[in-house]
Structures are given as structure tokens and as C-alpha cells.
Amino acid sequence: MGLIAREIESRGIPTLCMSSAYSITEAVRPPRAVFLDFPLGHTAGRPEAAEEQREIMAMTLSQFAAATEPGSIVRLPFDWSERDDWKDAVMQVSGSGDAATTEDFRIDRFEVPQYQFEKDAQLADPVCPSCVFLSELEPR
């Protein structure tokens, strides 16, 4: 996301990146970023928590005007839970640290579309004008 933000910003359009992965955002250094310390998959809040989602988004938008330092990352004042021990189990290598006992979190990288529902595959428009495919044969 940071790479895309940098490109858009270079065209004169201010960008703001949301993030739940501080280290990655810090390394890429997008022009403006907010950090929400929630598990991955909740970058903009919890499911069905409309009020909190609104708060998160209002604070996020305020950073467009508030951020003055390129590369700044502002932490949003929300906690996932009373305690932070949910962080302990995320992507941890097992005690012995070897491949046989470490759970492989990577799932197969299929090259065919992965539909949420089977019926989506039948409903998909094979022409799909709103699906934009970029070809490496046409370097930009």
C-alpha cells in the first residue's frame, strides 16, 4: 500500500494509509499513515461495530490536515481488548523452531480465481469491464 500511496502522492494527490502492521508501514514510509493496533483483517475496525468504525474513520480523516511530516505514523487511540496477550500467538514459531513442528501459515497460491461462494464463479461476467487486468507485456 505504501508504494501505491507514494505514487499517488507524486501526482499531487494527498494520501493516507491505514495500517495494523506498524513495522511494515514504518519500513515503506508512506506519506501519511495511521496505525490501529488491532489483529490483521480489522484495519478499519471490528465487524458490526458501526460507532467505533465511525470514530476510527473520523480520526483517520483528520490526519489528512493534521499530518505535516512526510512519513508520519499516528497511533489511533483504540485497544483491541483489555489485555494485549492476543499478540503472543500471532505467527509464532513453535518452541523447537523447526519446520516439522512449525505450522505453515502460508496457503497454496492458486493461479485461478478464488471465489467466496461457488455461485460467484457462475455469476462472474467473463468480460467484466470493471475488472482491470494489467499485462507485463505493456510496461508502463
Binding site: E111, A121, P126, C128
Partner: peptide, 17 residues
């Protein structure tokens, strides 16, 4: 969106509007 082609998992460079 339902009706669009889904993404695949291997370096999918496409985007959806």
C-alpha cells in the same frame, strides 16, 4: 463484487472497480 471475477492468490496485479 458478486458478478466480478475474483482474485487469485499468486501475484494478482489486477484490480476491481
Amino acid at each position: 463484487r458478486e458478478g466480478q471475477i475474483a482474485f487469485h492468490y499468486k501475484d494478482d496485479l489486477s484490480f476491481r472497480e
